[in-house]
């Protein structure tokens, strides 16, 4: 099949508007990266930002737990909590980048896994504002920790994009798994996952203390 034929076949089978945007996506995929604002050759790109939250297991479990808990609580927590977390995390991250100190960061991160995992494990359903405040409070510790680890001189915009999108993807993965809670067996699986996250958080806490 020629590319033209494939394109027209695509228009028949996929949404027309979606299909018409495929060339744009293809152009973006094939564009090569460059480092617009690197300093001292220490540029770190989109991939660096994207992998930063993923390679920190303590961060991963907490972010997944946010998604899990949101899915468990249902609307509107399912989207509100993952909106609150990156916003607060970014503000706290900015403070970390700028060198503003925050005591007990590692303790707070370990506690976040225990608390958020525990909420899922015990199927806790507090009022929405309490859930949002709790998630926001823990996001401060995660954001600050990330901020202090961010390399000055990184290619800021690409790094930030990768970082935020990876965080969002971790929430989405938590939400996807948490969606299993619609079914009885899935509910058990989700609560078990919450318990595992809390246990891992406890192990981190012991190590911190």
């Amino acid at each position: 099949m020629t590319s033209g034929a494939a394109f027209f076949d695509c228009r028949r089978t996929i949404s027309r508007s979606l299909c018409s945007l495929l060339p744009v996506a293809a152009a973006l995929i094939t564009s090569s990266p460059a480092f617009a604002h690197s300093e001292n050759g220490a540029a770190i790109d989109f991939a660096g930002g994207f992998t930063h939250p993923i390679f920190g297991p303590d961060h991963v479990i907490a972010m997944v737990a946010v998604g899990l808990w949101g899915a468990f609580l249902g609307m509107p927590a399912i989207w509100l909590l993952p909106v609150v977390f990156p916003l607060v995390m970014a503000i706290a991250g900015a403070l970390g980048v700028l060198g503003v100190p925050l005591p007990g960061v590692e303790f707070g991160i370990a506690l976040s896994a225990i608390a958020l995992g525990g909420m899922v494990a015990f199927a806790a359903r507090p009022p929405l504002w309490i859930a949002a405040v709790l998630v926001g409070a823990f996001a401060i510790f995660h954001g600050h920790a990330h901020g202090t680890e961010l390399p000055v001189g990184a290619d800021a915009i690409a790094y930030s994009m990768g970082f935020v999108i990876a965080t969002g993807m971790l929430h989405v993965s938590g939400i996807a798994f948490g969606a299993l809670s619609r079914w009885p067996a899935g509910r058990v699986a989700v609560r078990t996952a919450g318990a595992v996250i809390a246990i891992i958080g406890f192990a981190y806490l012991v190590r911190v203390i």
Binding site: H37, P86, L87, M89, A90, I91, G93, A94, L95, V97, L98, G99, G147, L150, V152, A154, A156, I157, Y159, S160, M161, F163, V164, T167
Partner: peptide
């Protein structure tokens, strides 16, 4: 979030 992080990294 991206704008806040980018801005802080630029300032730092």
């Amino acid at each position: 979030a991206i704008a806040i992080l980018d801005l802080s990294l630029r300032i730092a």
